[in-house]
Amino acid sequence: MFSISFLTLKTLCIPYFLDTKTINYYYKAIDKAFTKEPLMIEIKNLTKSYGTNKGVFNLDLTVQKGEVFGFLGPNGAGKTTTIRHLLGFITPDNGTVKIAGKDCFKEAHTIQKDLGYIAGEIAFFNHMKGAEFLHFIAKMRALSNLDKMHSLIEFLELDIHVKIRKMSKGMKQKLGIVAALMHDPKILILDEPTSGLDPLMQNKFVELIKREKKQGKTILMSSHNFEEIERTCDRALIIKNGKKMALSNIKDLKNVERKIFYVALQNTKDKDIILKSDLKIIKQNHTDFEIEVSGNLDYFIDVLSTCKIKSLDIKKQQLEQVFMDYYKEGGGKDD
């Protein structure tokens, strides 16, 4: 439909008024706006039950081409179960799981050509050296160009001439990252990819993900580190007990952020105003208050306007805290 009207527009109108360069610019802009990015990952009504609250229940999830998708939830929420479906390790009780339009279980081997995977708990062939292992994986993938492998090893500062058995958790994680990315896959599925990495390496990893994203890769990653999700992802899904809790743009998530204010009053008598109000007081030391405000600030300002304020300061909560609230609240309703 769009293409017809667009074509009419293209052939009839614009050429008479504008020069070719400008026209092409508009063409591209219009094209981009109307072309829907195809779905790379599509999970519909997925159910896999391992007993009450264990597994995944009626989960829907879509990731578009070129999107970085964050997958959050407490331990045992069903993240890894969902990811196992995507890899074709397990079959759904109900629902469909597709990558690039292909069934994840039946066509796992075709999907794997363009897929990079980091497992939540990576188990290697411990008797091998890092280099041996990477060459084995390269051979399994019939990969002849090892440039990306070498640049990743260099970027992550990984020593590959060590037996895997003797590697630290962080080193193993790096090895897993190299093994997952070295064939330059179009889709990345990363289950807690930064666990075991030191903060410096976590930063490098975020850099790496951003670089992959720039190249148009589709990425789904689970994590407990909110900062990491915040810095890399476009959208995030929170699940708990196998059920969808919230799906949002990262921007929206930031908006529901809780804030904590430090309020110091000039007079002791104003204390009662604060104490009698509906404000959520976390801490109080004489005339010094720590007040938590979620969402709307109006009421908070109203109350404060009736007091004499010595100082007002804001303590920015880590977004992780927001997620903790999601985890807890959801659990309360469910249990």
Binding site: L115, A119, A123
Partner: peptide, 15 residues
Amino acid sequence: DDGSIAFILSTPHTR
């Protein structure tokens, strides 16, 4: 048991 089969199955080969 230890899950290292994941590395084999995440290469483009059928089970």
